[in-house]
Design a protein around this nucleic acid. Structure first.
Length: 617
DNA sequence: AAAAAAG
């Protein structure tokens, strides 16, 4: 599909494609979602299985309403109304006055206890581009996606949501989200989770992972509530979530929270988010109104745990998104503290799900500490980091990078769609260079904003909104924006500075080409990136990209240093338990390979783009 | 060496 055209054409085409309204919608399967299937097996919540009596939570003294059904919901805008990016275009000086928390105008109706409809048009920024996009769905391609599973008695995949008994309320939300058919990772992961098994899942960026772990969690909590689960009482100020979802960045936690709220609408399951950089008091108030699913970043959660405002004692579901990042050197101690050193039930007494697009084997080894008899699942490329993204590498000296970027942007603007610059995400190495590049772009007439860890949380969120809305169609970012963020319509990802780790590259370019759309990724390569040459060349080759001869020469010259050398795996990752080097004294009971190898390789799922939010992440 | 995550 990659006939050679100029990058400018590619960017323009990709932008055009992303704003065109497609028409072929498949709504056949919707009608077949069954309200309540005829499954009569009594449900045993995970915490009641294999559980020594001694570890039961203390008898609850609290006998009030056990579920969070009847809580008022917040109807106001998040932190005051929408604002324009104050830095957009330098001088446009968007006047935002309020700071945090000032804008809690909506209030909530205590008497009615009405839940805000998350499907409403609360969030205008998201709607700016996409009225009625619906790209064609290439369901046949699903069959070609390579899948690897390993572990004991792996539950078989399903083909439709109708085959799984998720419950009426959840089915309704799935329909509201316009999800017609489960994505490949959902087809496999949901039955595994519903069967009560722990899971380590490796699936490409934008493949529907959030729903894959949210659906079973929501379903499980609904069942617990139907059985009248009761929580301990340790003073009114301590809350007991039943599920915990951790992610490595604040914005990703926000995004997961928004998704989870949609999935749990009118299910009686309450989702709350907690992250740093935002006023603690507001989050505490939300928590006090009750929480079933807590979405959090590690730092803020540790804070809440140490203040005893949150107890993990009742956690029955633990999900780590971007799990490999969560367990890398910077995060691991914090994660271990949360998972192993507070009051969370141990593996086997809770259900644990780890998801990521990349899963290096040493990280798998660390992660296995959190898991009990788990299933490993790797779902092959689903139209990301592969054929759907055209990857280009250009040799550019540091001193030429700016003017080169300028050339790209100029040509892109010339080919702009509807007079609008296509959304371009520019990754740089440092926070400082993000600031200076943003400034330089603005000075040179390109409306840009930036996101990185030295900006205030308001600025970060504002930048993201402004970018999504097309107000500032260029976003300069550090790796804070590399993972998980679902930004529709990103036409072009520029690796102004390449990362040192090929996995980071994979995550970065995964910000484009989402939900079955095409995308373009351009990387500036020079001598300071030689350690990446081999991995980059291999990755590009694997995804049928044109590898420049000069890059191949760099690749051949480098001695394939360990970490960055992809070991010729067909796709994604491989269960480290199956590597021959992993053998702890005959503990071989994991060895059984029940792999449902769909054998074939290549091919991608067309995917569907339900208005606004994709089913894919 | 840098980025992220608490204030």
């Amino acid at each position: 599909m990659n006939t050679r055209t100029s990058w400018a054409d590619l960017a323009a085409n990709s932008a055009a494609e992303n704003t065109n309204a497609g028409s072929s919608v498949n709504n056949g399967a919707i009608g077949t979602i069954s309200g309540g299937a005829s499954r009569t097996k009594t449900y045993v919540p995970p915490h009641l299985r294999n559980r020594p009596a001694s570890s039961d939570p203390p008898a609850p003294a609290y006998s009030g309403p056990a579920t969070s059904n009847d809580r008022p919901a917040f109807t106001g805008p998040r932190w005051g109304g929408s604002r324009n990016d104050s830095r957009s275009g330098y001088g446009s000086g968007g006047g935002r006055t309020g700071g945090w928390g000032g804008g809690r105008t909506g209030g909530w109706d205590r008497s009615r206890d009405r839940e805000v409809n998350p499907f409403g048009d609360d969030d205008n920024t998201e709607q700016a581009f996409s009225e009625q996009e619906n790209s064609g769905i290439n369901f046949d391609a699903y069959e070609d996606i390579p899948v690897e599973t390993s572990g004991d008695n792996v539950p078989p995949p399903v083909n439709t949501f109708a085959e799984i008994d998720l419950g009426e309320a959840l089915n309704l939300n799935i329909r509201r989200c316009k999800y017609v058919k489960p994505t490949p990772v959902q087809r496999h992961a949901i039955p595994i989770s519903l069967s009560g098994r722990d899971l380590m899942a490796c699936a490409q960026t934008g493949s529907g992972k959030t729903a894959a772990f949210c659906f079973p969690i929501i379903n499980g909590i609904m069942k617990m509530q139907a059985q009248g689960v009761q929580r301990p009482f340790r003073g009114a100020r301590t809350v007991y979530p039943l599920a915990l979802i951790l992610s490595p960045t604040r914005e990703l936690s926000m995004q997961i929270h928004e998704e989870a709220r949609k999935f749990s609408y009118q299910t009686g399951v309450k989702v709350v988010v907690a992250y740093g950089g935002a006023p603690l008091n507001q989050q505490l108030r939300e928590l006090e109104r009750g929480v079933d699913i807590l979405v959090a970043t590690p730092g803020r959660l540790v804070d809440l745990l140490e203040r005893a405002r949150v107890s993990l004692q009742m956690v029955k579901y633990l999900a780590l998104d971007e799990a490999d990042r969560m367990l890398d050197m910077g995060f691991e101690p914090q994660i271990r503290k949360i998972v192993e050193q507070m009051d969370m039930p141990p593996p086997g007494s809770r259900q644990t799900m780890l998801f990521s697009a990349t899963f290096p084997r040493e990280i798998q080894r660390l992660a296995s500490d959190f898991l009990y008899n788990y299933v490993f699942l790797a779902v092959g490329r689903v139209g990301s980091s592969t054929d759907l993204i055209v990857q280009r590498v250009e040799f550019v000296y540091d001193s030429d990078k700016r003017s080169h970027l300028m050339d790209l942007l100029h040509a892109q603007r010339a080919n702009g769609v509807q007079g609008k610059q296509a959304l371009t995400l520019v990754f740089v190495e440092t926070k400082k260079s993000a600031d200076s590049l943003e400034h330089w772009l603005c000075v040179n007439g390109f409306p840009a904003t930036s996101i990185h860890g030295d900006r205030s949380q308001q600025e970060r969120e504002q930048a993201l909104r402004s970018f999504k809305s097309g107000n500032t169609p260029i976003l300069v970012a550090t790796d804070v924006a590399a993972r998980g963020l679902d930004i529709p319509h990103v036409a072009h990802v520029v690796n102004f500075d390449l990362p040192n780790d090929i996995d980071d590259y994979v995550h970065r370019i995964g910000r484009t080409g989402r939900a079955g759309k095409s995308g373009l990724a351009t990387a500036f390569f020079n001598e300071s990136n030689v350690t990446l040459a081999r991995a980059l060349a291999d990755l590009m080759q694997e995804s049928n990209q044109e590898v420049p001869a000069w890059l191949s020469r760099y690749a051949a010259r480098s001695y394939g240093g360990g970490r960055n050398r992809r070991s010729g795996v067909r796709f994604g990752s491989r269960d480290f338990r199956r590597d021959s080097s992993y053998n702890r004294g005959g503990m071989d009971y994991y060895g059984g390979n029940t792999g449902s190898g769909y054998g074939s390789s290549g091919g991608y799922g067309g995917g569907y783009g339900p208005g606004g939010t994709s089913a894919w992440d």
